[in-house]
Each structure stands twice: as C-alpha cells, then as structure tokens.
C-alpha cells in the first residue's frame, strides 16, 4: 500500500500534539504537525508527502484551506470538530473526529479509514493486468525507444504514450526503464537477444 502520511493542522498545538500522539500508536503511520502560522501550507504538504490532512473546523473554514480542498485532488481531508456548528455537507471528509472523542474512538475511526484505503488499493491490484496496448508500449520502452519514437511507431500522440506509461507504472509499481526492461524480460515480452542486438 502507498504510505499514508498525515498532516495535522489545528489552531491549537495541544490538540495537534494529542492527535499526533494517538496516531503514533497506530502502526506504520507517520504524521506532521503543520503550524497554524504556516504561510504556505501547500509546500509543507508536498515537502512531507502528506496525503491525508486532518484539520479542525475553525481552520478549515479559512479561505486558504477551502481553496486547497477544491484544488488538490490527491489530498484527502479529515476533520476535527471543535465547535457545535455543522459544516456544509457538500464537503467530504475521510475521517470525522469530534474534539471529545475518546482515544478508543479515534483509534477505531483511523483503523476504519486505513482499512478502506487498503481495500481500494487491493482493488487496483486485482485489476492490474496490462492491456494489449500497454504491453505493446512496454515492449517498446524496454527496447529503449523514446516517447516520440513510440508515438511514431504506433501512430498515436506523444501525450497518449505518456498516459499509457503512467498507467503501466501504476499497475506494476515499477518506475524506472531498467526495471521495466527486467519485467519485460522476465515475462517474455521481449527476448534477451533483442536487447543484445541493440547493444
């Protein structure tokens, strides 16, 4: 499973630290407290590879957070309710904490989130067979062809090649050309002598 890294952003250091303490008890989860004074939250998120941001309702209502919610599609949001006002229900929060939740409840909400994140990942794994087109492209990548050359060979746009390559990497979890070449050889998508001919 992709690592889940949590960012915690509230108006109170004590609350953030408390949430972080409970999260740290959950195996395999790392978290960063983002100070409320942080001017560029986006950078902080990128720098720390945060993919789940837990914010308090007060902070969430600030324009910079609302903007982040609307623009960053890869970031999931969790909420900590600190006041008795309900937020607009159009917002989707992966986890919904209440300030007065017990440790047990916080833990179980987190576990539930992790389980669903894990399941969604499993789903993509089960469907990870490469399509015919993807195999064709993988073959050319493994033979050392550039995106431009692949586009010309298959009469598709360079942009389409890039999209296919992203999908291949997502399905196989292999990121480098050398890695893809080894995969292609192991699965007889290319043969050793084809590479020897190139060298």
């Amino acid at each position: 499973m992709e690592n889940i890294t949590i960012g915690i952003l509230t108006e109170s250091y004590v609350i953030s630290r408390g949430i972080q303490f409970i999260i740290s008890k959950n195996n395999g989860l790392s978290s960063h407290i983002i100070p409320n004074s942080e001017l560029c939250i986006k950078n902080n998120i990128i720098e720390n590879n945060i993919n789940l941001l837990i914010v308090s309702d007060n902070v969430f209502e600030e324009p910079k957070l609302l903007k982040l919610y609307k623009t960053d599609r890869n970031l999931n949001f969790g909420l900590i309710r600190t006041k008795q006002v309900s937020l607009n229900s159009m917002f989707e929060f992966k986890i919904d904490f209440d300030l007065f939740d017990t440790e047990g409840i916080i833990k179980s909400k987190l576990d539930k989130y992790l389980e669903s994140a894990l399941n969604s990942n499993k789903l993509s794994l089960e469907n990870s067979e490469l399509s015919k087109r993807e195999i064709e492209i993988l073959r050319l990548v493994a033979l050392g062809k550039t995106n431009q050359a692949i586009a010309e060979t298959l009469f598709i746009s360079k942009h389409t090649v890039v999209t296919h390559r992203k999908k291949i990497t997502a399905k196989l979890g292999i990121k480098t050309i050398s890695g893809l070449t080894v995969y292609a050889l192991l699965n007889s998508i290319i043969e050793t002598n084809e590479i020897d001919e190139l060298n």
Binding site: G173, I174, K175, T176, S178, G179, V182, Y183, L186, N187
Partner: peptide, 17 residues
Amino acid sequence: ENIEEKIYDIKNLLIKY
C-alpha cells in the same frame, strides 16, 4: 530521485517475480 527509484524497483521485482 532516480537512484531511489531503482532500488525500489529491484525490491519490487524480487518480491513479485
């Protein structure tokens, strides 16, 4: 980046194949 990616791939290939 590339240096880290390669070692990740080696691990991945060993585990899977």
